[in-house]
């Protein structure tokens, strides 16, 4: 009975929204995950109910204001100042309606939060202001590659402040909190590229902390993953450094084309003499770069804020050497 009513309302909403569930809608972005339809149908149900009640309130208000406008010859018409039965009625009816809405929201939410056991696991690290996705074979990437039609579990942690992983097309959003793991999952239903945003305010480049979700066609994901892992093994130190620069999010603060960012640009950095905040200065060499990666607050270049986090325990000595080689190459 309830379901029947809510279906009817949903259909009404579809008319209001001028779209149906599968196609481009005026409101939510086109759905691309298996859980999206449950979210979208609840959304449309709500749209229908609230449009109805909004219209009711506004039309009644306007109608009364016109119909019962003040006229010199007549005062107010006799009418009761309360009616308990009526008031109980308009207390109980909304209660029933919100009950239905709650149930729809709850059942959809259970789908969003119940992670299938056989899901493919990808580890997510968020930090100011980039994402890092690690795959079971050890490959790391700054974009989220997933196979189509396969549930994917994201196990997420933050290295600094709270971030939020938000993929509108998948109807996925979950905070990424330092000091604990949070999880999210989705099963992509359409190959293609989608945006992934940081939804929890995290400072300067919050708006720029995004990644792509690349949904591969059947079979292509495995090929991509194998190739990506193999490519890493055959890289020269400079290319390896470039790769690390990309996946560790160095680029979100340090440009390689000379433009100023949150941190100094890497272009022409090596061998240059830089001034520090404490007034001292020194020439940028291997040791200074190494120190700045492991203990970034020790010597901060004048004109920049001490906002970088340490990469101690994140980058190995070999990786730091590769980064130094990469920075050297940017002359």
């Amino acid at each position: 009975m309830i379901g029947c009513w809510s279906n009817a309302v949903s259909i009404g909403s579809v008319v209001i929204a001028g779209a149906d569930l599968q196609r481009e809608s005026f409101w939510l972005p086109p759905p691309a995950s298996s859980t999206a339809p449950a979210v979208d149908s609840a959304f449309l149900l709500l749209l229908g109910i609230s449009t109805f009640f909004f219209a009711l309130i506004v039309l009644l208000g306007l109608w009364f204001a016109i119909r019962y406008r003040r006229r010199p010859e007549t005062g107010p018409l006799p009418s009761p100042s309360h009616n308990t039965a009526l008031e109980v009625l308009w207390l109980v009816i909304p209660l029933g309606i919100v009950g239905v809405i709650f149930y729809h929201g709850f059942s959809g939410y259970l789908q969003l939060r119940t992670i299938p056991r056989q899901a493919y696991e990808i580890e997510v690290v968020a930090r100011k202001w980039s994402w890092l996705f690690s795959y079971p074979n050890g490959h790391k990437d700054e974009n989220l590659h997933v196979p189509v039609d396969k549930p994917v579990r994201l196990v997420m942690r933050s290295e600094d402040v709270i971030h939020g992983l938000f993929i509108p097309a998948m109807r996925v959003q979950m905070d990424v909190v330092p000091g604990r793991y949070t999880r999210a999952w989705f099963r992509a239903t359409k190959p293609g590229e989608y945006n992934l945003w940081c939804s929890q305010y995290c400072g300067t480049k919050h708006f720029d902390m995004r990644a792509l979700v690349i949904v591969h066609r059947p079979g292509e994901f495995e090929t991509w993953l194998a190739d990506a892992a193999k490519a890493r093994e055959t890289l020269s130190p400079v290319e390896r450094g470039r790769e690390l620069y990309r996946i560790n999010g160095c680029w979100s603060c340090h440009s390689i084309d000379g433009t100023a960012g949150t941190g100094p640009t890497f272009k022409g950095l090596f061998g240059r003499e830089v001034q520090f905040q404490d007034g001292t200065s020194s020439v940028v060499d291997e040791n200074y770069i190494r120190q700045s990666i492991l203990d970034p607050q020790a010597k901060v270049v004048r004109g920049y804020q001490p906002v970088m986090n340490t990469y101690r325990g994140i980058l190995s000595d070999e990786e730091i050497s590769a980064l130094i080689a990469f920075i050297k190459s940017l002359q």
Binding site: V39, S50, I101, H104, F106, G108, Y109, R171, Q173, Q200
Partner: peptide
């Protein structure tokens, strides 16, 4: 409008794509 859109945000599943 403010109150009715509050229902959207109070609804568990719909909250997820609308939060933040």
């Amino acid at each position: 409008i403010g109150g009715l859109t509050g229902l959207f945000l109070g609804t568990l599943s719909v909250n997820v794509p609308l939060h933040n």
